[in-house]
Write a protein that binds this DNA or RNA. Structure first.
Lengths: 251, 251
DNA sequence: AAAAAACAAGCAATATTGTGCAATAAAACT
DNA sequence: AGTTTTATTGCACAATATTGCTTGTTTTTT
């Protein structure tokens, strides 16, 4: 029995059974436990599995992520994403705006979902490449590096050619009077056309973005159908939005 | 017994039994173990099998999933990417095709470079978002999930609107007679228009892709200006390409 | 806290490998 | 034909890899 053959077998077995024990392997491969341990150590060093006392476990998949901000308030984003995910229904065409919260939505879309997602965010496209059911349309354009999002005339034109059932917007600032605002000028046109071409619009807003405004106005508040926010927001802060005919969804 | 005869027999046996041992082969072929080892070494260099201590195993199938491909032969990719990176010059407009090798190129572009990169690959766009100097144009279209690449009429139209100085192509199969081929039909049109709209074309080809062909033909070999490959390729395999006026760059 | 299991490191026996070299066979050339 | 050149093969030998064992340590369990 060749060493590499053993390695293959170990990995096969690990994949199949979800774990392997050093003792079992020693018996079934007909080599000493020391050899098994050495094998496991090497495979672990090669990143093929995760070594644990007594055996080994499958290596946890490397998260596809872009640097920075991802650790910023993960619970809040996660809460919001969970609620927003439920807005998406089978067969819909959905605009998925760029942003870390919307990226979380993309990751959480249920496996069984059948839908078309139109996104101007390369990281979201990448995340959705692993989803078995959704058709993904990448919106092209010049890449705005800060937000990692395609912007510009081409992006706007592409988006305009769709009629979406739902638009999930990553929001930078939301204010009862100023409406939906952003600090990035180039995103204005893109977000506007997304709103214009979607039947329903959901704004994904974490607590610290609520009641804030940025220099560039995207749209007034009534353009928004749903406001999705997290549980840390006090209930009374949301009244102002409710009165503007926005449906508030809180995790 | 001829050498090539032995080689055939070794490959047959490998296919049949799933592995071969140097000792067995020596006995059954009636040659010394040294000769067997030499045979195995040559076959491995030609990419026909995988050499391991004590014998040889079938060449591991090229992984289909994107994440799987990322881990496939990182050294070779790295070598190729290093060379390909030097082809890019300041101020150029460059098409960067999808692929794990081209992704590596994107990651290695020198910090000081000023250029415009046009890519249909979300992962490459994502990687370049961290580069301070290059302008990135994302090409939109329907996302082909296996390769994580935008394809379709929209992608083709967008690419056609550029005149690039250089096109870096991730290549699936390259063959002196068949030319540049791919197993994914939808990528054909995209690659073709990239080639057509670029002044120079560089094909990034790792050893196992050389002298192989797939069902869909992208372009004949003379369309390629540079062939960039890694150091594991035997020099004589490249002569056929040189004779077709391709400039061969080997790491 | 004690016992058992799992572990890492070092060691020796064996197997495998690469390299240089010489002998032979095949090919190319004069 | 005769000769040089090249390729192929087997052999000796040093270097390397693999394996099981022993010893002592760490981790887990009782």
């Amino acid at each position: 029995m060749l060493k590499s053959e053993r390695h293959m077998l170990v990995l096969d077995r690990l994949e199949e059974e979800g774990k392997v024990l050093a003792v079992d392997l020693s018996a079934s491969l007909g080599v000493s436990e020391d050899t098994v341990r050495r094998d496991l150590r090497e495979l672990a060093a090669a990143g093929k599995l995760q070594r644990v006392h007594g055996g080994a476990l499958p290596r946890p998949p490397i998260p596809v992520s872009y640097t920075g901000r991802l650790e910023h308030e993960p619970e809040a984003k996660s809460e919001i994403a969970k609620v927003a995910t439920d807005l998406v229904e089978d067969g819909q065409v959905v605009f998925l705006d760029a942003g870390t919260t919307t990226l979380e939505v993309a990751r959480r879309l249920p496996e069984g979902l059948r839908a078309t997602v139109v996104t101007n965010s390369p990281p979201i496209a990448l995340a959705l490449a692993e989803h078995p059911g959704v058709e993904v349309i990448v919106v092209g354009g010049r890449l705005h590096k800060e937000s990692v999002v395609a912007v510009g005339a081409e992006a706007v034109e592409t988006i305009r050619s769709f009629r979406a059932d739902l638009c999930l917007l990553g929001v930078c600032g939301l204010h009862p009077e100023e409406g939906l605002t952003t600090p990035v000028y180039e995103e204005v046109a893109v977000k506007r056309v997304m709103i214009a071409c979607a039947s329903e619009v959901a704004a994904l807003v974490s607590a610290e973005k609520l009641d804030t405004a940025f220099p560039y106005v995207v749209a007034p508040l009534p353009s928004v159908t749903y406001l999705v926010t997290d549980s840390s927001v006090p209930a009374e802060s949301l009244d102002a939005y409710r009165q503007l005919s926005v449906t508030v969804l809180r995790a």
